[in-house]
Amino acid sequence: MQLFSTFETTELLEMAISTIEKQGIPKESIFAVPLDNRKEGRKIFDTLHLSDGTSLIDIGMGLATALSVIGASIGFKLSWGPIYWGLIGAFVGFMIGFAIRLFIELVVKKNKRVFKGKISEIILIVECEESQAGLIEDILWSHLALGVAKVK
């Protein structure tokens, strides 16, 4: 039986491995694979098939609505009329909101988008007898494994 588990790179992983070895599992039956970090940064603009859940137009739409109402109200007194000034207000509001959101994503949240500083996880594979699987699983969970799976 094989047990797969994921760990963060900490001393708890090494403690789990040594505890498993003390239970009679040989070193040849324990395999640890570190995952590589992502090299390139995340993209700001989403594609049709991939979205990170961050919207760049949410502030722009709110400001477009607010400034179009203000522009239409003031437009009754201006020469072009309320419709043109409402559209101008909507366009200006959208562009201001989009610029604010783009600034927030590029400057303020820059560190969230970069994966280089994050510690990669490690996949630990333990080959054992079916009778030892419950004990090994308890050891992995007690040493703060992020996830554990069993395969017969």
Results as ranks from 00 to 15, higher is better:
3 L>F: 01
5 S>M: 01
6 T>A: 08
6 T>W: 04
7 F>Q: 00
7 F>L: 05
7 F>M: 00
8 E>Q: 14
8 E>H: 14
10 T>L: 08
11 E>H: 02
12 L>A: 09
14 E>M: 11
19 T>L: 01
22 K>P: 03
22 K>H: 02
22 K>C: 04
25 I>V: 15
25 I>L: 04
26 P>Q: 00
30 I>H: 02
31 F>M: 09
32 A>L: 02
33 V>C: 10
37 N>F: 00
38 R>V: 11
38 R>M: 05
39 K>T: 14
40 E>L: 06
43 K>N: 14
44 I>H: 11
44 I>N: 08
46 D>A: 13
54 T>M: 10
55 S>D: 08
57 I>T: 14
57 I>D: 15
59 I>Y: 05
60 G>L: 12
60 G>M: 12
61 M>Q: 01
67 L>W: 09
67 L>S: 03
67 L>K: 03
67 L>H: 03
71 G>T: 00
73 S>M: 15
73 S>P: 03
74 I>V: 15
74 I>M: 10
76 F>I: 15
76 F>Q: 13
82 P>T: 03
83 I>C: 06
83 I>G: 06
83 I>S: 10
89 G>C: 06
91 F>N: 02
91 F>I: 05
93 G>H: 01
95 M>N: 08
96 I>A: 12
97 G>S: 10
98 F>E: 07
98 F>P: 01
101 R>P: 03
104 I>T: 07
107 V>E: 08
108 V>H: 09
108 V>Y: 09
111 N>C: 00
112 K>H: 07
112 K>A: 09
112 K>I: 13
112 K>P: 04
115 F>A: 15
116 K>P: 02
118 K>E: 11
120 S>W: 03
125 I>A: 03
126 V>Q: 08
127 E>G: 11
128 C>G: 04
130 E>V: 06
131 S>Y: 11
131 S>E: 14
133 A>R: 04
134 G>T: 14
139 I>G: 00
140 L>R: 02
143 H>S: 07
143 H>M: 06
145 A>N: 10
147 G>V: 06
148 V>I: 07
151 V>T: 09
152 K>C: 10
